[in-house]
Structure formats: C-alpha cells, structure tokens
C-alpha cells in the first residue's frame, strides 16, 4: 500500500503588493512553508485539488468533478506562471477514477488540459523541478450546481482509501487543496473579505473537525464566503484526505486590495512521517 506523506491547503490567487507589502511577504513566506513541507515529504505523486476557472471547461458541458489522466501537463500560463511541462500519472489517476466509481463518485477523466492558476500556481512552488507526478483533480465550483463540501470531504476520504488499498508499496502521495477563501467575483460585494468566516473555516479543519464542513450549505457559503468561497470544497477534500487529523494554520491575511481572504494550512496524517 502507498501512503499520504503530506496534506495541505492554500489560496491560489495573487495581487499587487503595492500598499500591502508586509502582508504580501507573509503570504509568500506561508506559501514557502507549505512548499517546504511538501517537498521535504518526498512525494512521488502530487494531487492538487482545485476548481478550473472556465479555462479548460465550458458552460456548454458543465462537468463538476474531473481528474486529469494525461501523461504530462503544460500550464496555461495565466498569472505569469512559467509554462513548463510537468509529468502526470495516468496510472494513478485512472486507478483513482475506477476506485471512486465503486465508491459512488463518477470522476470525468480529462486528457487535453492546460491547468490554470488553480492547479499550476501551487504546483509551480510545490513541485519545482517537476520530479513529482502531478495529478490535477477538479472540483469545479464554477459550475452550477457546484460540488458540495460534503461530497468533497467524502472524495478526500476515498482518495486516502484508494492509496491505502490499491497503490504500490511505498508510493508516497502529497495532497494539496487549492482555492478560497472568501471572495466575491463580479458581484456588488466584490472587494469584501469575511475574515471571521475564513478563520472559522481554517479553525474547523485544523481542529480535526473538517467533516463539519459537510454541513455547510451552498447558500451559506455564498452568503458568508461569496461565490469564490465555494472553492473551500478543495479544503474539505484535503480535510477528508487527512481523515480527521489535526493541523496548523500557516498563514492568513484578509487581502481587501486583492478582493480575497488568503490562507494556508498544513495537516497531520493520515500517514505522514515527516
């Protein structure tokens, strides 16, 4: 059986440092700490969970949950992310799609995708040399209906079960939830940040109570965290993959000038040994 050697979650956008230099630096240092944690866990496979931002998926066929099964990925290059080819893991991804089908999840396998910043930004700093196989897992919260936190949490648990039950002996897997926290996209509330809600989400997960996110409704997320706040499904996935273990907050900044709450956490287990 394989094992999960690191689990983390982080926001994945960025904005101008002008007027917010110190907060920006704290975010960079937080991302660097998450990066170090993942790199030092020496993963063979890095599963990055995020929503696409309608760059690879369209509203004509609204796919809520998908998994990249390609042998390699070339980032879209949005947000200035270097366009460097990364290896994928067809074997891991297809195997997880099959395993998930038996567990009640129909993951849509996708082949020809260019990951946007949701996957490519954290991959760029957590998988710098490209030596770790990237598996993008899409919880497309831009679709309607979006994947719920309840489904995301259970899918995270399913990933942990898959790694334990079906992956090769000694395979090392890192899991990174990517997105959030509160932000309102092209709505009258744009520019607001709900720091109380953001910190509540962080605290719930790092206390080992991530399963409680399953009780948060779409309406509640939209009201408290905005339409961009739906991306906390990726954090719920990470909580599920850690199987209720505790964790710690790495950084949080209410970046009003970026129109978003920015946060990052590192979770224990379920199999971490670093």
């Amino acid at each position: 059986m394989g094992k999960i050697v690191s689990v983390a979650a982080t926001s994945h956008t960025f904005g101008s440092a002008n007027g917010a230099e110190q907060a920006t630096q704290r975010i960079v240092e937080g991302m660097a700490e998450i990066s170090r944690h993942i790199v030092q866990s020496r993963p063979d496979v890095l599963v990055i969970v995020s929503s696409d931002h309608l760059n690879n998926f369209t509203l004509d066929a609204q796919i809520p949950i998908a998994i990249g099964i390609a042998d390699e990925y070339r980032p879209l290059g949005d947000m200035g992310i270097p366009v460097q080819t990364f290896q994928g893991s067809r074997d891991f991804a297809r195997g997880f799609a099959q395993f998930s089908a038996a567990a009640g999840f129909d993951l849509v396998p996708v082949e020809n995708i260019s990951p946007d910043h949701g996957v490519a930004f954290p991959n760029a700093f957590c998988n710098p040399g490209g030596g770790t196989a990237l598996v993008p897992l899409y919880l497309n919260t831009v679709m309607d209906p979006p994947p719920s936190c309840a489904r995301a949490y259970k899918l995270g648990v399913t990933l942990a079960n898959y790694i334990k039950a079906e992956r090769p002996q000694n395979e090392r897997v890192a899991v990174l939830g990517s997105g959030g926290l509160s932000h309102w996209i092209c709505l009258p509330e744009s520019g607001q940040v709900n720091a109380d809600w953001d910190n509540h989400i962080i605290q719930t997960i790092i206390d080992g109570r991530g399963e409680e996110l399953a009780t948060i409704s779409k309406a509640e997320i939209l009201a408290q965290g905005g339409n961009g706040g739906l991306e906390i499904a990726a954090w719920a996935f990470a909580a599920g993959a850690s199987k209720g273990q505790k964790g710690r907050k790495v950084y949080y900044e209410p970046m009003v000038s970026w129109w978003t709450g920015m946060g990052g956490i590192i979770m224990d287990g379920p199999d971490t040994d670093s």
Binding site: F14, G15, S16, A17, N18, V28, M31, A32, S35, M79, G80, I81, P82, H117, F121, A124, F125
Partner: peptide, 12 residues
C-alpha cells in the same frame, strides 16, 4: 490590478 507571480515563485 493583475500581477505576475513569477518573481514570487522564484522567491519561494
């Protein structure tokens, strides 16, 4: 305002 994250990736 949009910025490139490339220098921040290099810093990390």
């Amino acid at each position: 305002s949009m910025v490139s994250v490339e220098p921040y990736i290099a810093q990390i």
